[in-house]
């Protein structure tokens, strides 16, 4: 409710800053000119930017940092439709310009935004998106959201759960899935493990332990859910700062951590790797 009040205040302030024009303006460049000539182009600009942003995300692969691949086509189509909309609009406006007739003022049916503000918000968001690339979520988010071994049931889980994958080929996600299907850690003792993920330091674990983690996305980055397994290192974890991406080779063991029996990767080898282009699991 407080947020709502703040929003209301914000909008009121905006309204005060941009009062609606009362009658005719005496300036050479009137508000009417602004409404009828500039604003339509501003709309075109905002739509075009959003279209470009979506198409850009799709083709640079940044889209997978934001949403689940199931929606890729939807986003691409939306981008194309937005670009097409701005194209048709441009054509219309140009035709009007050539005819010389000024466009009759567009009907204002703005409800709470003064004219131009909504377009500005859209345009600013799109331009910011075009300039600043999305971030790969990292250990701070993982800690905030609470890292676990239990799996959010994703859409893909039903199809892809299988224990037929050889242990050394299982990804971190495969291990988590297997563990969810059969949670007894002793069942996996001495199986080879070979996983990649990013480092999370958990204070409650001893000095030579870290969590190797991945984010799982059900729908979009908003619901990214961290999963991970504890790794026992030959030395302290200080050489691997949080957010480092590691390739861990080792064997599975069972350890008692914080009074709980857990599956732990006993690392034989840990190598730093670059952040993969597809950091999330789906």
């Amino acid at each position: 409710m407080k947020k709502l009040e703040q929003l209301k205040q914000f909008i009121l302030r905006l309204k005060q800053k941009n009062p609606r024009p009362q009658g005719k303006s005496k300036k050479a460049f009137s508000f009417k000119d602004f409404y009828t000539k500039i604003l339509p182009w501003f709309d075109v600009f905002a739509l075009l930017n959003w279209g470009l942003l979506m198409v850009k995300y799709r083709f640079t692969g940044q889209l997978q940092l934001l949403i689940h691949p199931n929606y890729f086509t939807l986003v691409l189509i939306t981008g194309i439709v937005l670009i097409a909309l701005s194209g048709i609009r441009t054509w219309q406006l140009l035709k009007q310009l050539r005819r010389g007739g000024s466009r009759e003022p567009e009907v204002r049916h703005i409800t709470i935004f003064p004219p131009g503000v909504a377009t500005a918000l859209l345009a600013i968001a799109a331009i910011a998106g075009l300039i600043v690339p999305p971030k790969v979520l990292a250990s701070d988010t993982a800690l905030q959201r609470g890292i676990t071994e239990s799996l959010p049931f994703t859409r893909t889980q039903v199809q892809s759960f299988t224990s037929r994958i050889k242990p050394e080929d299982r990804s971190l996600m495969d291990w988590i899935r297997t563990l969810n299907a059969y949670p007894e850690p002793d069942a996996y003792t001495d199986l080879p493990a070979n996983v990649t993920g990013f480092v999370v330091h958990i204070d409650s674990l001893p000095e030579d332990y870290l969590m190797i983690s991945r984010f799982v996305i059900t729908c979009c980055a908003v619901d990214a859910y961290p999963v991970g397994l504890p790794v026992k290192l030959p030395s302290t974890r200080d050489q691997f700062p949080p957010d480092t991406w590691l390739k861990i080779e080792g064997v599975m063991t069972t350890e008692e951590l914080n009074g709980e029996r857990r599956l732990v990767i006993n690392a034989i080898d840990a190598n730093k790797i670059d952040t993969p282009s597809n950091p999330y699991e789906f």
Binding site: T78, A125, V132, A138, C220
Partner: peptide, 19 residues
């Protein structure tokens, strides 16, 4: 970093909702 996280989530929400 918090701001950057928020910005990414913001874009993620928009990219999901705009279609």
């Amino acid at each position: 970093s918090q701001l950057y996280n928020a910005f990414t989530l913001f874009l993620s929400l928009l990219v999901e909702a705009i279609p």
